[in-house]
Design a protein around this nucleic acid. Structure first.
Length: 591
RNA sequence: GCGCCUGUAGCUCAGGGGAUAGAGCAACGGUUUCCGGUACCGUGUGGCGGGGGUUCGAAUCCCUCUAGGCGCGCCA
């Protein structure tokens, strides 16, 4: 569906043209003086220079033309040269009427769907998810759904950290503890047990233990490095152990991510990229991009107009081992081969930006991707505690994601139980649904690139710009619709009638905001900015609540009016639910 | 040292060339013949870290200073 703003823009552009000015000046925006108008056009001010006329003269002649359009109830030229625009209630009503019958809620699917790989999550095998993983998961999931909502083909990849020294460390520590396991016996040729010799909680304890030892004990570290190398060379017992580690850990990761309502299409990891490294390196050498420098193999990626020095990309260390960059490049090779993506989006801590600049440049320079493949780096800031410093447990350690989620759910449960109308057996489940909205909305409402302060009291509040407030609004609408269904016997899905012109300012405001959904979503998506979706639905929820407050819907005697209202609030509910689904959470039926 | 990012009401954050800079929280005061008052309405608060510049017009663009955060080839 064409956007409201496009209808207005077009009418304005026609008016500029008829008045003798270039159409390009007819840019219409939401009014920043809502007391004066709904939309505004500042084009006359901009055009003044080119036409050597007073802006107000231009504005007035354009206004004369615009007044001929049927969609405006008022068009005015004011002071220096603003054009203030108000649309007719009938126009808005007919727009919403069309929208309410559109399965896409007026959102336009792209005519040119792109294949997009989105790399987020960044979980490490054998290490529990902690709060540092939260932002990547939450923001990445939202962006994935936003792109999908607009019709792109999006492939989410968790890109596991499943290769390298951490594996060697675990193997070493395991041997320390259970030396008799067959995995360590090189002469063993039989089948290895199907059951892993450890549980997830043991695994989670083993890694930090091993990591600690390796820092103080050099011979221990040497053994871990050797184990890593042997694993990579394919030692049978170690590969079998690695598989166990993967299985146990993946099951746990699946569980935790699904609790966050985050799901990946691909569970690829660094290990999957390994086979691509050798041929990639060979090609880089053969093509003359990679060369030896101080014993390491590097590719220059500096560009002449860099403001700062961009260090070369290191492909192989002087001992011949590969690095982070190498694996990331090989992953790109693999993705090119498997999916030929139009774009790869990385949702990663912003501190890694330099690394990705290097990687992207190197991939392009070496021809791993073509010039049209778009790399997008979305760097997010740190989640801080109330003291403004990186979020920690009370004891000062890294907080596990599970703990954080539980804290929020507990808080939510307390608040829900205070409401006597909810039955206890539902309360726990509801607390989880509402808790997730608190957690995710609390994060997503901020610009991704900035640090933000995690404040459990604020995020779980039903007041203000929070997830629970949005859900409350949805639940409230559902409640009205259910009541209506009880009274009339008409199912909520079929209730309502034709949407007619607004009967109050509050209603018109609500209708205009609802009609902007396509615009809001497309803008947010173009900027990879979930916080814009949050801002939009917050305003929509506010507009609904003020409309609700002074409108008695169910007791309205004018049937046409009442049915229109029912349709409207159902549309508002549908929009809110569609939007929170895009953000990655959902609403309960009651709370 | 070089480079990047951030600095907007007491607090948490929007706004990224245009008209009186906006929300929420906190504070205070109202609203219930009730479709969920975990709501709604109202009141006060800053001139956007400092300074200079471009522009008819700057929180928004440029320069500079300052404070804080972060990054800078053999970690990931």
């Amino acid at each position: 569906m064409k956007k409201i703003i496009e209808d207005i823009n077009e009418a304005a552009a026609d008016a500029f043209e008829k008045a003798g000015y270039d159409r390009k000046y007819a840019r219409v925006t939401l009014s920043n003086r809502p007391d004066l108008a709904e939309y505004q056009c500042n084009g006359a001010l901009a055009a003044a220079k080119e036409y050597h006329k007073a802006p107000i003269m231009i504005a007035e002649s354009v206004v004369e033309e615009m007044k001929k359009s049927a969609i405006f109830s008022s068009v005015e030229a004011v002071k220096p040269g603003f054009i203030n625009i108000t649309v007719t209630p009938d126009y808005v009503a007919s727009y919403l009427e069309k929208m309410s019958h559109d399965d896409e809620l007026s959102v336009n699917k792209t005519t040119d769907p792109k294949t997009i790989i989105i790399d987020y999550g960044g979980a490490n095998v054998a290490k529990p998810l902690h709060v540092g993983h939260l932002r990547s998961a939450v923001i990445g999931e939202a962006i994935k759904r936003m792109e999908r909502r607009l019709g792109n083909k999006v492939i989410g990849d968790v890109h596991l950290g499943d290769w390298g020294l951490q594996m060697g460390l675990i193997i070493t520590e395991l041997q320390e503890r259970q030396p008799d396991l067959p995995y360590f016996d090189e002469s063993y040729t039989g089948e290895y047990p199907e059951e892993a010799p450890f549980t997830i909680s043991e695994l989670e304890e083993i890694y930090p233990c091993a990591s600690g030892k390796s820092k103080t004990d050099d011979s221990y570290k040497a053994r871990a490095l050797e184990a890593t190398a042997e694993l990579q060379r394919g030692r049978r017992g170690y590969r079998a152990l690695w598989k166990h580690i993967m299985n146990v850990s993946l099951a746990d990761l699946h569980k935790n991510y699904s609790r966050l309502n985050v799901s990946f299409d691909l569970w690829k990891g660094e290990s999957d990229a390994q086979p691509y490294i050798a041929p990639m390196v060979e090609k880089m050498k053969k093509d003359g991009y990679a060369y030896m420098d101080q014993g390491a193999l590097i590719v220059d990626v500096a560009e002449p107009d860099d403001k700062k020095e961009v260090p070369p990309c290191m492909i192989l260390k002087s001992d011949g081992a590969s690095l982070y960059t190498t694996t990331d490049l090989a992953t790109i090779v693999q993705r090119e081969e498997d999916y030929h993506p139009d774009e790869i989006i990385y949702v990663v801590d912003k501190r890694q930006e330099m690394h990705f600049i290097q990687t992207f440049r190197c991939a392009r320079k070496c021809g791993i991707v073509g010039p049209d493949m778009k790399f997008t780096f979305i760097g997010f800031g740190t989640m801080n505690g109330k003291d403004g410093k990186p979020f920690k447990t009370r004891e000062g350690g890294v907080m596990r994601l599970e703990t954080l989620i539980k804290d929020i759910d507990d808080e939510m449960y307390k608040k829900i139980v205070e409401n006597r109308s909810v039955r206890d057996k539902d309360a726990e489940e509801t607390a989880e649904v509402v808790g997730l909205s608190a957690l995710k909305y609390g994060d997503l409402q901020n610009q991704a690139s900035k640090d933000y302060i995690f404040d459990i009291d604020r995020f779980t509040s039903f007041e203000g710009n929070t997830g629970p407030y949005i859900l409350y609004t949805i639940v409230r609408i559902k409640s009205i619709l259910n009541k209506y269904a009880e009274e009339t016997g008409i199912a909520p899905d079929e209730a309502g009638g034709k949407i007619i012109a607004a009967s109050s300012d509050a209603e018109k405001k609500l209708m205009l905001q609802a009609g902007r959904y396509n615009e809001a979503l497309e803008d947010a998506c173009a900027e990879y900015a979930p916080h814009r979706v949050c801002a939009y639905i917050y305003e929509l929820a506010n507009d609904f609540n003020s409309f609700y407050h002074d409108t008695k819907i169910l007791s309205e005697e004018n049937e046409e009016r009442k049915n229109s209202w029912i349709s409207e609030i159902r549309l508002v509910k549908d929009i809110l639910e569609d939007a929170i689904d895009v953000l990655g959470f959902s609403a309960p039926d009651r709370m």
